Simulated scan of single mutants.
Amino acid sequence: MASGKEDVKLLGVVGSPFVCRVQIALKFKGVEYKFLEENLANKSEQLLKYNPVHKKVPVFVHNDKPIAESLVIVEYIDETWTHNPILPSDPYQRALARFWSKFIDDKIVGAAWKAAFTVDEKEREKNVAESLEALQFLENELKDKKFFGGDEFGLVDIAGVFIAFWVPIVQEIAGLQLFTSEKFPKLYKWSQEFLNHPVVKEVIPPRDPLFAFFKARYESLSASK
Rank of each mutant, 00 (worst) to 15 (best):
Gly4Tyr: 01
Asp7Trp: 00
Lys9Pro: 14
Gly15Ser: 09
Arg21Glu: 11
Leu26Gly: 04
Lys29Asn: 10
Gly30Asn: 12
Glu32Leu: 01
Phe35Pro: 14
Asn39Arg: 04
Ala41Thr: 13
Lys43Glu: 03
Ser44Gly: 09
Leu47Arg: 07
Leu47Cys: 08
Pro52Gln: 06
Pro58Cys: 03
Val59Asp: 06
Val61Gln: 05
Val61His: 05
Asn63Ser: 07
Lys65Arg: 14
Pro66Phe: 07
Pro66Met: 01
Ala68Gln: 05
Ser70Trp: 15
Leu71Gly: 10
Val72Cys: 07
Ile73Arg: 00
Tyr76Ala: 11
Tyr76Trp: 08
Ile77Glu: 04
Ile77Ser: 02
Glu79Val: 01
Pro85Phe: 09
Pro85Tyr: 08
Pro88His: 14
Pro88Ile: 12
Tyr92Trp: 14
Tyr92Ser: 05
Lys102Trp: 02
Asp106Pro: 15
Lys107Met: 03
Ile108Tyr: 12
Ile108Met: 08
Val109Ile: 15
Trp113His: 13
Lys114Phe: 11
Lys114Ala: 11
Ala115Gln: 09
Ala116Thr: 00
Val119Leu: 11
Lys122His: 12
Glu125Ile: 01
Glu125Gly: 10
Val128Phe: 01
Val128Leu: 05
Ala129Glu: 15
Glu130Gly: 05
Gln136Trp: 04
Asn140Ala: 12
Lys143Val: 15
Glu152Val: 10
Glu152Asn: 15
Glu152Tyr: 11
Gly154Ala: 13
Ile158Gly: 04
Trp166Arg: 06
Val167Arg: 00
Ala174Phe: 03
Gly175Met: 02
Leu176Met: 02
Gln177Ile: 01
Leu178Pro: 01
Phe179Gly: 01
Phe179Ala: 00
Ser181Phe: 01
Tyr188Pro: 03
Lys189Gly: 08
Gln192Tyr: 03
Asn196Ala: 10
Val199Arg: 03
Val199Ala: 11
Val200Glu: 06
Lys201His: 08
Lys201Ala: 14
Ile204Lys: 02
Pro205Phe: 01
Arg207Gln: 12
Pro209Leu: 00
Phe211Leu: 14
Phe211Arg: 15
Tyr218Gly: 06
Tyr218Asn: 08
Ala223Asp: 13
Ser224Tyr: 02
